[in-house]
Amino acid sequence: MTAYLVVLVLTPLWVFWLHWIAAHVGHYKNFKFPPLLVAAGAIILAYLLVGILAWQVYFRRLDSLADVVCAVIYGTLVFGGLAFSYFQCFGMTETARRIHILRALDANHIMTFDELRAEYGADTMLTVRLSRMVELNQLELRDGRYRVKKRLILRIGKAMAFWAKVLGFAERTGA
C-alpha cells in the first residue's frame, strides 16, 4: 500500500507535469483554449495516469473486490482533494483580484491608488469576468443580453451561498 500512497501524495506533481505539457503544446500549436479548461483537462489526464500507476503498484495485487472498491474510492477522494487544491492555486493566478493587484504592484514596484484603479478598476474586473463566463460557456450573449447557458458555475454559486448560510454569513445575492 505504501507505493500506492506515494503515487497519491505526488498528485499535484502529476497534474503540474501534464498541465505543463498541455500548456506548452497549446502554445506551440497556437490553440486558444481558456487556461482554466486546460488545467481541468490536465487533471482528467492525471486521473487516468494515477489510475494506471495505481493498478500497477497496488490494485492488481488485491484479493477481494471489496478491497479494490475501497481502494478506488479512497484514491479518487485523495486525488480529487489534492488535484482540486492545485486547480484552485492555478485559478487564483488567473482570476483572483488580490493576486492581480499584488502582481501589478510587483511589476510596477510602487503605484498610486489611482494608477492601480486605472489598470484594474471595477470596470475592467467586470468586463474580464463577463468575457470569461462567455468563454467558459456559462453565459451567452444574445441580442445584447446575457443569459445562463450552462449551469456548472451557477450550481457552485448556489452551493456556496447555501454553505455561507450554514456558516452564519449574511444572506447573499441569489442565495
Partner: peptide
C-alpha cells in the same frame, strides 16, 4: 486532501465572488 480542498474553496463562501454573483444575478 479533503481539508485542503475545503480550505481552498472556503473563500468563495466567505466573500462575494463577483463571477458567482454575476451568474446568479443573470
Amino acid at each position: 486532501a479533503l481539508s485542503f480542498a475545503y480550505i481552498q474553496i472556503y473563500p468563495a463562501s466567505q466573500a462575494d465572488s463577483p463571477s458567482l454573483k454575476m451568474i446568479m444575478l443573470v
